[in-house]
Structure formats: C-alpha cells, structure tokens
Design a protein around this nucleic acid. Sequence first.
DNA 1: GCCGTTTTCGGCCCGACTGTTTTCAGTCG
Length: 573
Amino acid sequence: MARLNDQVAALLQEYADLLLLTGGDAYRARAYEKAARAVGGHPDDLAALDAKGLQQIPGVGKSTAEKITEYLATGRVAKLEQLRAEIPAGLREIMAVPTIGPKKAALLHRELGISTVDELRAAAETDRLNDLPGLGARTAENIRHGIDQLRAGGGRVLISTATELAEEIVAAVSAAPGCERCGHAGSLRRMRETIGDVDVLAVAEDSAPLMAALTDLPQVTEVIATGTTKTSVRTTAGLQVDLRVVPPGDWGAALVYFTGSKAHNIALRARAVRAGLKLSEYGLFEADGGRKIVSATEEEVYEALGLSWIPPTLREDRGETDAALAGELPDLVQESDICGDLHTHTDLTDGLAPLEAMLAAAADRSLAYVAVTDHAPDLAMQRMTDAKMLAQREQARALDRRYRGLRVLHGTELNIDRDGNVDWLPEFLAGFDLCVASIHSHFTADRDTQTRRLIRACENPYVHVIGHPTTRLLGRRPPIDVDLEAVYEACARTGTVLEINASPERLDLGDQDILAARRHGVRFAVDTDAHAVPHLANLRYGIGTAQRGWLTADEVVNTWPLQKLRRYLKKKS
DNA sequence: GCCGTTTTCGGCCCGACTGTTTTCAGTCG
C-alpha cells in the first residue's frame, strides 16, 4: 500500500484530470495538480494534521483541505466519486496516449462514444476519426502510432540507461561544426530515479549541422519532429531525445528552462513576474519594454531573481526557492566527499570480481576505505560457511593498506528473515568490522510483519546498516509494505544507518523517503552494493538521490574519516 | 482553487510544433 501522502496525491491528481476531461476551469485543475505535488512531497504524515495544519501546506487551501479531511475520515471523496461516475475510467488512460490531451479525449468520447484505448485503436483503424472537427488523416495515424508506443512500454527507463545515451548524444552533437557548447538538461540533470526522455541543449549560430548530427546517429530510429530550434527523435532504447539549439549568449536561461522541473520553472517565473520581469528560455527580460537583463549563465539568472544558484537536484519546487532566498540552501553532499563504500561483494558469493580486483578498483577511485560485505549463510544459494568467511577475513587483513593505503573493513551482508532475525550467533557477528542487514525474501508479508521485522533488525547490536530498505526494483518490484516512519524512529534511536543503495535498479531509499527519514535525525550511507568493478561507478546515482533528499555530507557516514566512522559503529555494539 | 512587499479580486508560465486551420486550438514540456 502506498504511503498515505502518496495516496492523497494520486487522488488529487485524478481529480484534476477528471476536471479537465469535463471541460472544467483549467486553473482550477492546475490548483489541484499543484496541491497533489505538495502533498506527495510533504514530509509529515497527513494523518497527523487537522484542517488548519493541512492549509499550512503551500498550494493546499480550504477546499483541498476539506477533501483531504473527508478522505481521512471516510476513505472517500464525494466530489471525486461524482466525477468518476460521470467519466469512464478508460478516458484517463486515453490521455496517456501521446498527442491526446483532455480536449481530444473529451471530443472522442462525446462524438464517438470512445472510452477505452482499445476502442480508440479500433476507431483509428477506420475513417471514423476524420469526420470530427479538427481531426484529419494525420491525426488518426499519430494516434495509432502513439498507442503502439504506449503499448511497447514507452514508459520510463533507468537513470543509467538514459545517462549512457545522453553521453553518446552530447559527444556527437559537440563534434558538429559550429557547436559552441552542449550538455544534457531535463530530469536527467536533476537525477530523477527514472527518466522519461532525454533533453539535450546546445549553443550554435547555425543549428542545422547540430540537428543533422543527432538525426544521423545510428541509435535514432525515428525523427518525430524537426525545426530550427528543436528536433525530437526516438532511439533504439525506446527513449525520446529532444535537442534544443539556442543562440550564443542564451545558454544560462535555456539551461534553467530545460532543466526544469516544470514546477520549479513556474515558481521562478512567478517570482520574475512579481519583480516586473519575464523569464523564458531566451533570458530574463523587463516585462514592459522587453529589454533583456541576463541570459548567459544560470548563476546570473538566479542572481537577477534575488536567489543564489540552486543545484539541479533540488529543482522540484519543494521549498528550494524560499531556501535560496533566505540563503539557507543545504551544502549538498558531493561525490568527492565520499571516503568509502560500505556495501560491496566479491566472487566469494555472487560478485564477479575477486577480492584483490575489487580493492584495487576501489583504490583507483581514490576511496580511503571499503567494506567487503559478502552474503551470509542464510541465503543458501550463496553457499557461505564460517570457514570461508574467516578465510576471507584473513585475506582482507593481509591486503589492508596494500592498495594505495586503502583500509579494508571486513563485513557481511546479513539476511533479515521473516521475523527480523539475522544469520549467525552474536559471538561470530562480533568478529566483523561492519554488518549490513537486508531483506531478500517474503516481499509480500503484511505491513505489521515487515515493520516489526525491520525494527528488530535495527535493534540488533551487531547490525550497523540496513541495506536497500524498501527492496524495491524500479519498474519491476514495488517497495515492501512497511511503516517507514516507525523504522526511521528505530534507526534514530539505535544509531542504525539507512542505506541509499546506488544501484540504478534500486535507488533505495528514494528521495522522498530520505526527506522523511532525515527529519528523524537518521544517518545514511551511500553505497554501491557493487557486484562487479564497474558497479563502483554507480556511486554517482546514489549521490544524486541523496542530493534530491537534501542531504549534507555530515549526514552521510561514509563521508567521514575512518576513525570517526569506527567510533560511531563501535557505539552500537 | 489558490494566493497577496501595490492586490481579498483578478490574475494564474510561456513558447514551439503540429495539424488543420486561412488565423488557430491542442498538446507538450
């Protein structure tokens, strides 16, 4: 079951969609969309708030607060039920088809009685769509194509997939004649956990060679649209790429604009309007007269709006503009702050590389320490034994300081069973420098069981870190159903560290959970869970996620020098 | 529906592209 705040956010978003489908006031719908975002991103549990408290959330007014209170009390919202009764559920799904928005969806339903994607598909196969005002032959073709894309899982991809593609495209466009500057923007620059499309921005007097460099790439399967300022293509990865080319001098304003998020841009624009200015991708202008004030760098744009530069990972309209105004932006943890990795595997269990190779690679990445944490016996398929583990410990001790002074911590990744117990007896556990404990089974146990299970693990004096706490796999497995607030409380109470697993398939904890956990004073570890040498480079995705959770270096224990970390770990057992 | 460093009313971000239009509506980001 989703977190209460997320449930409410989904209801408010649905309400906004249904308002649009019934031709309601667009501003009213936008107000609900904004409230949905605000509620989803709100750190406190809504159940703890009364109507007064709810209205303290920016974007939530009297009417929205009433709907939330009604939902909390009765589990329903009468106005929403009313709209649901009026509009077939499938119409919302139709809006997910590219080129179909609320207006076309409503028109299709009103004129042709279409209320599901399948019915739309059938209608697009015939000439029935051509009779509608404003729809022609191309429209039907676009709809057929859009449905194909949707069905092909045209959803979001992992950040690693998008990063690799973006780097190839930036390299190709940068090499085009006349390209003065090129980089990626969009949700990828903000380091969202999954990516819907890749935005690339470039600077040139003449855009044509740059557009050609993109459309000529072998990864491009289809050119969706092309003009002098924007070209959109689809790639073999199934991912859409938008390339925008702006004139020299407009880089900063364009980068702000195309980095987003949309909500952040709206907040910036509203701020500009209040100051008698107008912000677009071409610069910051005086509202009357239109004189350009700045556009060359992001720093200039933010400064002219009275704000310090806001890191892209914070640009989600979660209070970052207010913080920038007050000079209270967090000093975000950087990849260069990381001194060690506390969760890695070798070929002793399911890793690919031998211990020496992992240590050498960690040293090459300039880490000061690394914990080797192979699986423990309860994961039977890993065939771990006491003897094997002790032999590895001896080997680890022998290799300590051998690679550029790298310190080696001998650890393990314990398995948290259904009742919250872990592998081995206390006497054996006491021999490890560090223990990570994670859930690897019973993903569908009920909420009470999962909560009890994780709290029990936190209370184990030998468990230092909870690995991938929700066990979600992005796009494949949902997070376990657990009372995370209770787990955060237990972590804070026992000094147990929560992992931010940097594997692009996990990114667990995610940014919203981090924001909630840090309010309990929890400490975090950004770990790669590397099962191979290249996985050590995934650290950047974990750092991006930590930044999206507003974390500073001090809140992340593996930015600490080894001595300080050891003292912290010792306090527990 | 929400909101306020001119405002408790009257605004609410802005531009590109597409398709079907002879001047614009819808969608998208």
